[in-house]
């Protein structure tokens, strides 16, 4: 296996940031077409992102807002709504 150009991994990362210039994008594409190891690596990076994004179900505790309001310093309460 011949060594891949060092900047290819950086180009992949920049691609994932939406930060890769058109010229570098072509270099990356061209390299990926002929290098399965880099293809695989690139897939792994993309899969990693999908994994991170898949963790998103989580419920905020009940009464969260009420509890915050109860923790606010009392002295500022005077001008607010009276109960």
């Amino acid at each position: 296996m011949k060594a891949c150009p060092e900047e290819i991994v950086l180009y992949m990362q920049e691609h994932l940031d939406g930060d890769l210039s058109w010229e570098k994008e072509q270099v990356l594409k061209e390299h990926l077409q002929k290098c399965t190891a880099c293809q695989e690596y690139f897939q792994e990076l993309k899969r990693t992102i999908a994994y991170i994004q898949s963790t998103s179900h989580i419920q905020t505790p009940e009464n969260f807002t009420m509890n915050v309001m109860a923790r606010l310093p009392k002295e500022k309460r005077s001008e607010g709504v009276r109960r």
Binding site: S56, I58, T60, F64, V81
Partner: peptide
């Protein structure tokens, strides 16, 4: 800023999910 503390409750409502989520992912403990 005018002293209406209740108005802050609406701000908390708007952002609580995002802030809680951020903290949960950072700390890993509810």
């Amino acid at each position: 800023l005018r002293g209406d503390q209740e108005a802050f409750g609406e701000i908390v409502e708007l952002f609580k999910d995002k802030v809680f989520h951020l903290c949960y992912r950072m700390l890993g403990n509810r």
